[in-house]
Amino acid sequence: MKNFPVKLLVSVLCVIAGVVLLAVTVAPAKDPCEKTISKYISAINSENPEKVHDLEFSADDYLDGTALGGLLGGIQDSYESETESGETTRMELFKSSAVSSRVPDDADKVKKIKLLGCSAGENISEYGITAAEYDILVEVTYTVSEDGEETDRTICYGDTVSLAKGKSGYRIVG
């Protein structure tokens, strides 16, 4: 036992402990609803309509279809109407549409939507459906043209997101 590599073992344990602590410290602190919101905004940010759709509450999740959030529908409607005129591409439209009412008129292009924080609101459980409301803080980075040069600008705004618990966890209602 005298030749047992004790120091090596201690070193390895220190490294493991350090990595674990580091991971715990820097890992995002999110509850299930916040995870869904975060994924949803990531899906919008990465302009992935299928992912967005997957994260929205649907009739399959036992909710009245009218309760569906209008975001995706709105995006698709405007996609259809605007792409017909050939003025913009689907990818540009997707991200821009999600925040169109917020960014200033002089914005040329929405570059990035980032979730900065959440605040849990009312939690309701009725008729077998568990729903929650979250106030979120979002940062939008967009570009404006100044003297022929593109400049990045950011705005922040608060919004409210409603979620309901379906078969596959919390999904966005609106």
Binding site: S11, C14, I16, V26
Partner: peptide
């Protein structure tokens, strides 16, 4: 403080290694 401790332990572990 936890982050600092984690970094210290990790660095110490790597040095010892």
């Amino acid at each position: 403080a936890v982050l600092a401790a984690a970094l210290i332990v990790l660095i110490a572990g790597i040095v010892m290694l």
